[in-house]
């Protein structure tokens, strides 16, 4: 049998238990060829499940061992890994949970997976030295209108419809998670890394708008322009400047 075919058949056994490869496994006591294959198949499923458990620790806590293992098995069966490092396996878990029964019926499950995955991305996103508040003051007031902002590679924003971060925080503090609850309106969360530590917080409508435009590369004047239907005209420059200063303090702005 050509090597390509042999590898396809053994891989198929790992992925779905297919037994094409069985006649090509040598008979050698004390183990049967079936038990020898089973060692690999079990190791495959448990290794990938373990990788998901380590990326989605809170989801595992919420679902419990059994349900988590079932969700992992269904995901593993649907999306065999194409990633180099096992650390990236799980990239599509949140999407999978959002559209697969029975998990789709509890949307907070997929949302929690989104939060946890975003945090894994924040953790080892690229490095860059942050701007300080003083660096911003290098720009003369009359040039602030043209100022654009570059964000730290770790910065992520998520729009969450449920009390997902409250669940995350309770579990992180070792407390019982609150019951799932849908918010009146979706809330934007900002996630970033500062001094090697992951952080996240919610942002209000004004900051969410400012962030979205600034992250899109809009200059300060245009960011202010977008706040006109949210703030009184005279408040805009001060409030927008205060937001930018707070971003600098959190370390999310870097040199452009």
């Amino acid at each position: 049998m050509p090597l390509h075919r042999l590898q396809q058949d053994l891989q198929a056994h790992l992925l779905n238990g297919s037994v094409e490869i069985l006649p090509h496994i040598a008979q050698a006591p004390p183990l049967s060829p079936q038990s020898r294959l089973a060692i690999y198949r079990n190791a495959y499923v448990s290794r990938l499940t373990e990788a998901l458990r380590s990326s989605f620790g809170k989801l595992h806590q919420v679902l419990g061992d059994e349900v988590f293992a079932a969700a992992a098995a269904a995901f593993i069966a649907e999306r065999p890994s194409r990633t180099r490092s096992i650390r990236w396996f799980g990239h599509h878990l949140a999407d999978f949970l959002a559209r697969t029964a029975p998990y789709e019926a509890q949307p907070i499950v997929a949302e929690l997976a989104r939060v946890e995955w975003a945090l894994t991305e924040v953790f080892d996103a690229g490095d860059a030295s942050s701007l300080r508040r003083e660096d911003l003051l290098q720009t003369a007031p009359q040039h602030w209108g043209e100022l654009t902002f570059t964000f730290h590679p770790s910065v992520r924003t998520l729009s969450l419809a449920w009390n997902t971060t409250a669940v995350w925080q309770s579990l992180d503090a070792g407390l019982t998670a609150p019951a799932p609850q849908k918010s009146a309106a979706a809330v934007t969360w900002l996630l970033w890394r500062q001094n090697l530590q992951n952080h996240f917080r919610s942002v209000d409508a004004v900051e969410a708008t400012a962030l979205a435009w600034a992250m899109d590369g809009a200059p300060f004047a245009q960011v202010c322009e977008q706040l006109r239907h949210l703030l009184a005209e005279e408040q805009i420059p001060m409030q927008a400047a205060a937001l930018v200063a707070a971003w600098a303090d959190s370390g999310i702005l870097i040199m452009g």
């Binding site: 090597l3 992925l15 690999y40 495959y44 990938l48 065999p80 194409r82």
Partner: peptide
């Protein structure tokens, strides 16, 4: 792994000339 997939395991080879 083969055909672009990764089983994330150290799988054995047949010890052949090929």
């Amino acid at each position: 792994g083969v055909d672009g997939l990764n089983a994330h395991d150290l799988l054995p080879l047949p010890y052949t000339q090929e």
